[in-house]
Design a protein around this nucleic acid. Structure first.
Length: 596
RNA sequence: GGGGCCGUAGUAGAGUCGGUUACAACGCCGGCCUGUCACGCCGGAGGUCGCGGGUUCAAGUCCCGUCGGCCCCGCCA
């Protein structure tokens, strides 16, 4: 660069600087060579600026520009000039001006990039990820990461203003039962033993409350060794908070204030507070899922009682046998084709539904394969329950409560998308509360924690832990935005006896509890304050703010669905010597033969 | 562990019923061009049709396997 100092970002040069000399540095987006005049679009993170090189005015600079190619790194000094009449480009932020280049330096050359870094070329994601450092130069990708920066900046400011202390917690920690599969790190100093990377800093933030820090918050990486999805990465970032001497309302109030601030400062969107609250039971009843998309209504209706003794055996038997029959009235949906109905059936089947019954409400009455099984009064009872009118499509699932709710609930979401009811411009929040404490795990033949083992029961449900633990509800809350769980937390157990009771209900014996969580149990016995907290998925929140469907779009260096990094080629094999130091011998040699 | 979609020059695609030398676009290289902005015009180079096997006189195309990317179920307290 010599003595040159950059004076402006490319994207920040506008008519305000007319007549000034500026020095800009950046990457060549494109060169347009007119034989005489050469134009260069120079790009940096703030935008693109047109450089004009005139052979009559500055022959030396023009000649250097002949050799410039895409993605060369270039510095220029020149005067900010108005573009001649008729050549203003209204599509560009800097389109009223250009730089009359007086001096040009090529700071570095570039190979021809493997793909065009413009906004017009769609590139396969595996290519983008392999050359992520080039992909990250693109304005659309940069805007996601800059948005993410504004989110974290706003969160940190809000939490600081509200008295939260940012305290770091260990990354090398201890594997605990329950929850997701751990990522393990072998210990060299203690051969045969392993650290686990945290699934969340849960225990440490509770310990900090016991230590009197009162309000803790951290934007922190968490690790879960489970399969990936469009909105799930093995390492992801939480906005992790914990507070002492609070109840559920305190936590929800302060946290919805944080979310509102984020929406205001990053997207200039005013949210109305307080946010809606609904119980888990209501969510399941009306929407079939615990993370309902409330941008549209399309509520489920339970008709189990109505069809208990109806003429349609499939419904009647499920209803009589302790199952559940639920229906969805798709207003104006009678126009769906047979093919689309088959598609809906296949969709419901993904979630275990053995069938999807449908009825088209026509001028002639029910058009449906199952119409013939119902008596006239049964038809009218169903129509009334579903408020069915001509032109509607009724969809039914009869199954276990779990399957009926989930399949029809997911179908509801699918239909909302398909019918264009789920606008990306709309943001519908709700807290979902009163989750069950426990859930029966058929595979393991035991109860598992719905939230986590440190979640406190509702005061009025404590007695149920003895008599009917499956019915006990938790002081837990999730924040749901547009059908996506963006955060969740709970008031914690601060009483050692109740904590031990929960462990025993989870089938965690006293010895195991002592071994795995002994330090927490001990801590609880030394004056633990009532406390609770929450964690938000920063990646998911940013995804929604950015309007993208992939979590990879808001992570600089994301992993593929097989949890590999195409850029660094992680994970990789390690030297035998490294394994020896760790006392590890592989069961199967790698790099030999085929995988089984 | 399972279901689905995809893989063809550097990039993103077309390629019919299995049949001559695998096509045009963008990019790249060379030439021309003094107001373009996804500049334009002329010319050129560029291919292990993901990989392996099979069927066939003949495979980008059909079959089997495999690798990779994506979406989903399971899993994710």
């Amino acid at each position: 660069m010599g003595s040159w100092k950059r004076s402006h970002y490319c994207g920040s040069v506008t008519a305000d600087q007319l007549g000034q000399d500026v020095c800009v540095m950046g990457w060549v987006q494109r060169r347009r060579d007119h034989g005489g005049l050469i134009f260069i679009d120079l790009r940096d993170r703030e935008g693109v600026l047109q450089l004009a090189l005139d052979p009559d005015r500055d022959p030396a600079a023009h000649q250097k520009a002949e050799a410039v190619r895409n993605e060369f790194v270039v510095a220029v000094i020149g005067k900010v000039s108005p573009r001649p009449d008729g050549t203003v480009n209204p599509k560009m932020k800097t389109g009223e001006v250009e730089i009359e280049v007086r001096e040009l330096k090529i700071l570095n050359r570039s190979e021809t990039p493997p793909f065009m870094l413009d906004e017009f070329t769609d590139v396969a994601e595996n290519i983008r990820l392999k050359y992520r450092y080039l992909d990250l130069r693109r304005a659309s990708v940069q805007s996601c990461l800059m948005l993410r920066h504004r989110v974290t900046r706003t969160v940190r400011a809000y939490l600081d203003e509200n008295g939260f202390l940012d305290i770091e917690t260990p990354v090398l920690t201890k594997s605990t039962p329950e929850g997701a599969r751990d990522y393990l790190v072998p210990s060299r100093v203690n051969n045969g033993q392993f650290y686990a990377l945290p699934q969340s800093p849960q225990l440490f933030k509770q310990l900090l409350m016991i230590s009197g820090y009162d309000r803790y918050a951290q934007i922190v990486k968490c690790f879960r060794d489970e399969d990936l999805r469009a909105d799930r990465q093995p390492e992801f970032t939480q906005i992790d908070c914990e507070m002492s001497f609070v109840d559920r309302e305190d936590v929800m109030t302060i946290m919805e204030g944080m979310i509102a601030r984020v929406f205001k400062e990053t997207r200039a969107i005013e949210l109305s507070l307080p946010m809606r609250r609904m119980t888990y039971a209501e969510a399941l009843d009306k929407y079939g899922v615990d993370n309902p998309d409330l941008r549209f209504d399309l509520e489920l209706v339970e008709i189990t009682a109505l069809v208990k003794s109806c003429g349609f055996k499939v419904f009647a038997e499920v209803a009589a046998g302790g199952g559940m029959v639920k229906a969805l009235n798709v207003k104006g949906g009678a126009g769906f084709s047979r093919k689309e109905l088959d598609e809906f059936t296949a969709f419901a089947a993904i979630y275990g539904a053995k069938g999807l019954a449908w009825v088209k409400m026509t001028a002639e009455g029910w058009q449906s394969p199952i119409a013939k099984f119902f008596k006239p009064e049964e038809l009218s009872a169903l129509e009334k329950a579903l408020q069915a009118e001509e032109g509607d499509l009724l969809l039914f699932v009869a199954d276990s409560a779990k399957v009926a709710n989930e399949s029809l609930g997911r179908l509801r979401q699918h239909l909302g998308q398909k019918l264009g009811l789920a606008s990306k411009e709309k943001y519908s929040f709700s807290w979902v509360t009163d989750f069950p404490m426990l859930e029966w795990d058929e595979e393991e033949k035991r109860h598992v924690a719905v939230h986590h083992p440190f979640t406190a029961p509702l005061d009025e449900d404590v007695a149920l832990l003895e008599t009917d633990p499956g019915k006990a509800r938790a002081k837990a809350y999730d924040l749901v935005l547009n059908g996506s769980e963006i955060g969740g937390g709970s008031i914690r157990i601060h009483d050692q006896a109740i904590q031990q009771k929960i462990f025993s209900l989870l089938g965690i014996g006293e010895e195991e509890a002592q071994e795995k969580f002994g330090f927490l149990l001990d801590a609880l016995s030394y004056g633990a304050p009532p406390h609770g907290g929450i964690a938000f998925g920063l990646d998911r929140l940013t995804m929604i703010l950015a309007g993208t469907d992939s979590i990879r779009d808001v992570i600089a260096f994301p992993k593929t669905q097989k949890a590999t990094c195409l850029l660094s080629e992680a994970p990789g094999v390690v030297a035998e010597k490294q394994l020896q130091e760790l006392g590890i011998r592989l069961r199967k040699p790698v790099n030999q033969g085929k995988r089984e």
